[in-house]
Design a binder for these strands. Structure first.
Length: 876
RNA sequence: GCUCGCAUAACUCAGUUGGUAGAGUGUUACCUCGACAAGGUAAAAGUCACUGGUUCGAGUCCAGUUGUGAGCACCA
């Protein structure tokens, strides 16, 4: 190694390029280690094609990459399917703004020209996301990268649509939908409700016969032009007699009846409700029940129409204050109260959403039925499991899904209307030649496009070739893909798109493939800032993952995210945590430097026999770590798996392995091999530094050899109890001596002599331990003894007792420490004795627990004896 | 209103079928001893939110309370 510290920027791009060029990321990238019938498939949730990488992406793709690299190294034929999403509304809005900046409108440009612009923008901006992703070191099968509007996926969308259309599962109709006056129709979940301080306007409606007036209360006075009734509860004694009478709407003087409907809550407001069937979902139902007229008072852009009389031409929200003022002037406003209520906003543009009657396309909710059943039969498993509750409750209340969008950017609905014979049909053919019924050439395609989530709902199988035709076969997908990779093994995504995306994939996957699309669904939480606040541009607390990669490294960002990713828990990201990981990478670098000071290169573990005691001990610890990392990764416990690596490499390998090797240089070759093996274990988390150190210790350059990423993930998990027991004693003795030395103010000094009393270790074992203890405890000479040593400071460890002879030292602090220790032991003894004296405990507790407790009690008691003895001797 | 989380050391958080409470950071003391001061050694620090229950035994299971967060629904 030539430099003084590891420089990630020098290796990350270089390694990534080599990995990708060599095709390691592709499904046969690990061909040499693939095992029969082991297949793993995971889909990348396609990020918005014109977006840029944010910290949430960094988290989700890091976790996906960890699992993918793990499976790939573990011999699975692995597909991680990458791609991007066309993101209808978001992308269209961006392009519209560009055009507006040029002083034009999209209508002036025309649909065709607009789409050209959108594609251009997609080409320009579409690579940003994927190139940023590469910086993160992720390893999806890039050669298969898809786009939700590429040719094959357009075909699959048409295939799906036509199928559902012909089955009657897609229908078109005039219904009340969520309408954004900017973005058009939205599905139910695209509306975000927010608390809003509004007003409750109490309006006077005079009776038609001039015999007085009634008071109705509303939050949206501008809709009253569409009122076609006033309703009261049929049992309401106050108003019963009014049912059937007529009132006149203020200013416009249209007469409407007072009707009775039990929907009315008598306690709320005045108990009199204006009914506006065309502008309120409840009133819509009331209107149908009572056969009322549906009067729409503003157009698709929210501009009031003729029904609004003098207010025609005003925008609905702007009109409110004008209307209220006028009503007040004319004496129609009884009072205005403040009123807190929920107002729906468009999730894209934050515009206030209106209930609006419109002719739209819907997928009927029946489509979800089987996928709900199968999920509850356990055919797909959620991690963490409680998400199934949210899934069920949402799926259970599912209403028809509005899938048409008044946009140009997206999959245009493949339905055609013949103007000659009025025939309507859905066509697989992008450009049909004639009406299939009357052969007329006079027909037009529905102008709307499909909800973006319609195409992403097909993602788990459309990317595998379903419905693609065969144009891109063997390039983007292969013939057997569906057979090999459907259902996908796993989905990793954020809980926030459980309904938007996961649920939709479940219904579509089940419908078209007959099987749920995933075996496992891992939903991760949110990344927050160090104060636990949500990151947002307006708050200015956004952490840009690319900045983090530049300032630290991709490895550091990845590991920090992984070690923080406890299931179901939000992640607080902070500079402190990144620094902790940076220190960890520095530790690894230095450990490797130490190894290289002692040998040029190191073999791979497994190619040779471990001879040294230390080597055997460390390999046992590695095996324990291997077992744990595997178990944790198999359960998607990323934080636990990462913590195990941290613990093993720092607290075991460096703190003890390397230190002990200073007393046994012969073990260093073995430790190097073990370290290399540990790099494999760590590779999924930190792909770059592990590759670097692995090659360094092998004395190779990646350019001339195979990558660590297609070596076998460690499999050995056998523990060597015997060696572990020996080293536990060694470490205990070392810590005990160090503790004793602190007491006599000799902490960091070398001392001449120390005695160690170990019960039950053979002379041979003791001989082996000697050098290690001398070196690490800094003692000139260790002598093993069988009895207490007089005139000595002692320390009682877990497995041994040590004595440092002393002539003249201050004993007071030693005595106080021992007294404290004695108190602690006393507490422990009374607790354990209490348990063991309890007949019911002894009768009911399992044998191994009893044994463990008895042993613990005996231990504590003998320790206590020794402490007491020590105290006695010192206090003389 | 319904559903689902969370509450453990000063701070951030682990704690997987119930079996003597863990990590990192921070704190204190000491250490430049040839991997690493982005480091080392040692130490101190917890009525596991509260109340009750089940059990021989509860941070862990059950019921309730308080605080806190999220999702869904309703609101003329």
């Amino acid at each position: 190694m030539s430099t003084n510290s590891y420089e990630p920027s020098k290796v990350e791009d270089r390694f990534y390029k080599l990995w990708e060029e060599r095709g390691y990321f592709e499904i046969d990238g690990n061909k040499a280690i693939q095992k029969d019938d082991k297949k793993f498939a995971i889909m990348m949730p396609p990020p918005n094609v014109t977006g840029s990488l944010h910290i949430g992406h960094a988290l989700t793709f890091t976790l996906q990459d960890i699992i993918t690299r793990y499976k790939r190294m573990d011999g699975y034929k692995t597909l991680w399917q990458p791609g991007t999403d066309h993101a209808g509304i978001a992308t269209q809005n961006v392009v519209e703004k560009q055009i507006m900046a040029e002083g034009k409108t999209k209508e002036e440009l025309g649909r065709e020209e607009f789409l050209k612009r959108a594609w251009k923008w997609k080409e320009f901006s579409g690579n940003t996301m994927v190139s940023q992703l590469r910086k993160l070191g992720v390893s999806p099968a890039w050669k298969r990268e898809r786009f939700t509007m590429d040719a094959g996926l357009q075909k699959s969308v048409r295939e799906a649509f036509v199928h559902l259309y012909n089955e009657g599962l897609i229908i078109r109709g005039n219904y009340m939908v969520n309408w954004c006056t900017h973005d058009g129709a939205l599905s139910d979940i695209e509306v975000e409700y927010e608390e809003h301080q509004g007003n409750f306007y109490h309006m006077k409606y005079p009776f038609a016969d001039g015999s007085g007036e009634i008071i109705v209360a509303t939050t949206r006075p501008e809709t009253y032009f569409g009122d076609t009734a006033v309703m009261v509860h049929p049992e309401d004694e106050r108003y019963k007699h009014l049912i059937g009478k007529k009132v006149k709407l203020p200013l416009i003087n249209r007469e409407i009846p007072i009707i009775a409907d039990s929907y009315v809550d008598m306690e709320f407001g005045t108990g009199m409700v204006k009914v506006t069937p065309a502008h309120d979902p409840n009133d819509y139902e009331v209107g149908k029940r009572h056969d009322l007229e549906f009067i729409t008072v503003f157009d698709e852009s929210g501009i009031l129409n003729d029904f609004a009389g003098e207010f025609k031409g005003l925008e609905r929200l702007a009109a409110r204050s004008v209307i209220v003022k006028r009503l007040d002037e004319e004496g129609f406003m009884e009072k205005v109260e403040e009123h807190m209520h929920q107002v729906g906003h468009c999730y894209r543009c934050k515009n206030v959403v209106e209930p609006y009657i419109s002719k739209q396309w819907f997928i009927r909710s029946e489509i979800a039925k089987k996928s709900i059943e199968k999920t509850n039969e356990g055919q797909a498993k959620f991690f963490p499991p409680h998400w199934i509750n949210s899934y069920n409750s949402w799926m259970g209340e599912l209403r028809d899904w509005c899938i048409s969008r008044q946009l140009w950017w997206g999959h245009q609905i493949p339905v055609f209307y013949c103007s000659t014979c009025n025939h309507e049909w859905a066509s697989m053919d992008e450009h049909p030649h004639e009406c299939p019924k009357c052969a007329s050439k006079e027909f037009a395609q529905d102008p709307d496009v499909l909800d973006t989530w319609f195409s992403s709902a097909l993602w788990p199988f459309s990317t595998l070739g379903w419905g693609n035709g065969d144009s891109e076969m063997d390039r983007l997908f292969e013939t057997d893909d569906l057979k090999e990779f459907y259902p996908n093994s796993l989905l990793i995504t954020g809980f926030d798109i459980l309904f938007f995306w996961v649920a939709r994939m479940m219904m579509m996957g089940e419908t078209f493939m007959g099987k749920l699309p995933f075996e496992h669904i891992y939903l991760h939480a949110l990344v927050r800032d160090e104060n636990g606040d949500k990151m947002s541009k307006s708050k200015g607390n956004v952490i840009d993952p690319l900045d983090t990669i530049n300032d630290y490294s991709a490895d550091i960002l990845r590991f920090t995210l992984a070690v923080s990713a406890a299931q179901g828990r939000d992640i607080r990201m902070s500079g402190d945590k990144l620094e902790q990981t940076r220190n960890f990478t520095n530790k690894l670098y230095n450990a490797s430097k130490y190894l290289q000071m002692n040998a040029e290169t190191f073999p791979d573990l497994g190619g040779f026999c471990l001879d040294t005691e230390l080597g055997k001990y460390m390999v046992s610890r590695l095996n324990v770590a291997t077992k744990e990392v595997r178990a944790y990764l198999d359960e998607y416990r990323f934080n636990d798996a990462a913590t195990v690596m941290y613990r093993f490499l720092w607290n075991e390998f460096c703190d003890w392995g390397i230190e002990l090797s200073k007393a046994d240089k012969g073990s260093i070759i073995e430790l190097g091999a073990i370290f290399k093996e540990a790099m494999k274990l760590l590779h999924p988390f930190m792909p770059f530094i592990t590759e670097y150190l692995y090659q360094e210790l092998s004395g190779k350059e990646l350019e001339e050899t195979e990558s660590i990423m297609i070596t076998n993930f460690p499999t050995k998990t056998r523990r060597r109890e015997e060696e572990e027991a020996k080293f536990e004693i060694i470490m205990d003795a070392i810590v005990s001596i160090r503790r004793a030395k602190v007491l006599v103010d000799m902490a960091n000094q070398k001392i001449a002599k120390a005695y160690v009393k170990i019960d039950g270790a053979s002379d041979e074992a003791k001989e082996m331990m000697k050098a290690y203890i001398e070196k690490l405890a800094k003692v000139e000479e260790i002598e093993f003894c069988n009895a207490k040593v007089a005139d000595a400071v002692s320390d009682i460890g877990e497995k041994c007792e040590v004595f440092i002879p002393t002539a003249s030292i201050d004993l007071a602090p030693i005595i106080s420490r021992l007294e404290k220790q004695s108190e602690k032991l006393e507490k422990e003894i009374s607790k354990l004795a209490g348990m063991l004296n309890n007949e019911r405990f002894v009768a009911n507790a399992p044998e191994d627990v009893l044994a463990k407790n008895r042993e613990a009690l005996a231990d504590a008691q003998s320790k206590q004896e020794k402490v007491q003895e020590q105290l006695n001797s010192l206090q003389k």
